[in-house]
């Protein structure tokens, strides 16, 4: 039988105590154990960014982090952005600018962008491209995603 360990972490603000398989990634646990399917799975090798979540203050590919490594940390996923049904400026900007096409990459784009805006509230286009370079989108030409991040930054600085 695969080995399990107990971990304690905070997910979207709520403390969780979980028994996890030692070989399962944070992505596995979010999606399959906690039912938080907003975080997406694609390449599982850290290249596409679909699985991006924020751990403490940093964007992380949750497919590359073992769940046991998240012990004691604070994890935020796309489900934790909107509060009481109220979209964040970033989510609102993604909607308004038409950043989401099929939408599959969007949770990852949002979390990477959220981490960026928390660190640097007034990013340049190049900053956005750099921060989101690890988040592949096959539908868009990235233009509307970039526009959305810049618009949200402006909104948040007000």
């Amino acid at each position: 039988m695969p080995r399990t360990l107990d971990v304690e972490l905070t997910v979207n603000g709520a403390p969780r105590r979980l028994e996890v398989h030692v070989h399962h990634t944070l992505l596995d646990v979010l999606r399959d154990q906690l039912g938080l399917t907003g975080t997406k799975e694609c390449c599982v090798v850290g290249e596409c960014g679909a699985c991006t979540v924020i751990v403490d203050d940093l964007p992380v590919n949750s497919c590359l982090m073992l769940a046991v490594e998240a012990d004691g940390h604070e994890v935020r996923s796309v489900e934790g952005l909107a509060r009481a049904g109220e979209l964040t400026p970033l989510q609102q900007a993604f909607l308004d600018k038409g950043a989401a096409q099929c939408g599959f990459c969007i949770p990852g784009q949002l979390m990477a962008a959220q981490a960026l805006l928390e660190q640097s509230p007034d990013p340049t286009v190049a900053d956005v491209h750099e921060a989101l370079a690890g988040n592949l989108c096959r539908c868009s030409g990235y233009e509307q995603i970039t526009e959305a991040v810049l618009a949200a930054a402006e909104e948040m600085r007000r």
């Binding site: 938080l36 399917t37 907003g38 975080t39 996923s77 796309v78 489900e79 952005l81 909107a82 979209l87 989510q91 993604f94 909607l95 308004d96 038409g98 989401a100 939408g103 969007i106 949770p107 949002l110």
Partner: peptide, 13 residues
């Protein structure tokens, strides 16, 4: 606004 857009930015889709 895109039909289905809300689900796409909240992870509910």
């Amino acid at each position: 606004r895109r039909v289905g857009g809300h689900g796409r930015v909240t992870g509910q889709q």
